[in-house]
Amino acid sequence: MKKREFLKTVLMAGSAIVLATQVMAQEKIKIGFSQGTMNHPWRVAMVEGNKAYAEQNLPDVELIVTDGQNDSSKQVTDVESLMAQGIQVLMISPLTSDALTPVVADAMAAGIKVVTLDRKVNTDVTVHVGAENKPIGLAAGKFIGEKLGGKGKIIELQGTGGASATVDRHDGFVEALEGTELEIVATQNCDFLRENAVKFMEDQLQRFGPGEIQAVYAHNDEMALGAIQALEAVGRLNEVVVVGIDGQNNAYEAIKAGKLAASFTYPFVAPEGIEVAYKVAKGEAVEKEIVLPGKQVDASNIDEMLGKGF
């Protein structure tokens, strides 16, 4: 083969490779994942679990992840940016329902399929994936009621104000207290953060003396562990029943140590989130709402659950 012909062949082969690469890139399914915040382990587990699954099992997916940094306005901007990048599916765990509803409605109107994870918005979406928060709150209330014999004063550490999980975990808990002598005497939105829970509990332990508080209901394990920290600091943990939600490994360790009475597992929607997003991107039929099962973890079953959290 003459030199000129050889070079021509090489160039043609190179062009074919470039074209094939471009075609493959075009065939990638672009999925955007808008996380409301990454400020505690449950949220990190949700992101990392879905990313890892996509990397290992979905070579035809380009997953773009954003962090709203616990700021609803930033998360709105994140979603708008993802839409501008041409995503086919939006996975979103909204920080608050009201603030994220308009931009999610815009995404649906633009023909982008939307999969909400954990928290909901007040508009139609393609599919919602998560556990049911109200039954968890109800179960937590019944557990505390049984522990206290239906009588006692409770401090409630709520999550992020306006989040569907916060509303439902509170409403379910309040429903469980109906007809009992259990009473919530102090409550505050601690934003699902341990440090906020510690500060609020320190204030309440000055307000309520020894024997005046019988239980703490925290909307997640991070805040429950914060309550334990504050109670231990003043030597009052042995007089208070503390309950959390989520199923963190360090919460399980606290149950084993006799510090935390119970945690109600709340699946962190991984890899279920990306699995469902991939199915809707491929046009497969899915249920409108996919409910993930939770579980009560306490002294009776802690040995089988140790190390199985996140």
Rank of each mutant, 00 (worst) to 15 (best):
K2R: 12
G14C: 11
S15K: 04
L19T: 14
A20F: 14
Q22A: 14
Q26E: 15
F33K: 01
T37Q: 13
M38N: 12
H40I: 07
P41Q: 11
R43D: 11
K51I: 05
D67W: 01
Q69H: 05
Q75T: 06
Q88R: 08
M91L: 10
P94N: 04
L95Y: 11
L95A: 10
D98S: 10
A105G: 00
A109I: 02
D118L: 03
R119F: 04
K120Q: 13
D124V: 12
V125L: 06
V125I: 12
T126C: 09
T126A: 03
V129L: 09
I136Q: 12
I136L: 13
A140D: 10
G141H: 00
K142Y: 08
F143L: 13
G145E: 12
I154E: 02
Q158M: 12
G159K: 10
T160E: 15
T160L: 13
G162S: 04
S164P: 06
S164K: 00
A165L: 03
V167T: 12
H170V: 02
G172N: 02
A176G: 07
L177H: 01
A186T: 07
D191E: 15
N196K: 14
V198T: 06
D203E: 15
D203T: 13
L205E: 02
E222T: 03
M223P: 02
G226Q: 01
I228H: 02
L231Q: 10
R236A: 10
L237F: 01
G244P: 07
L260P: 08
L260C: 06
L292G: 08
P293C: 09
D298W: 01
M305E: 15
L306G: 01
G309V: 07
G309H: 02
F310A: 11
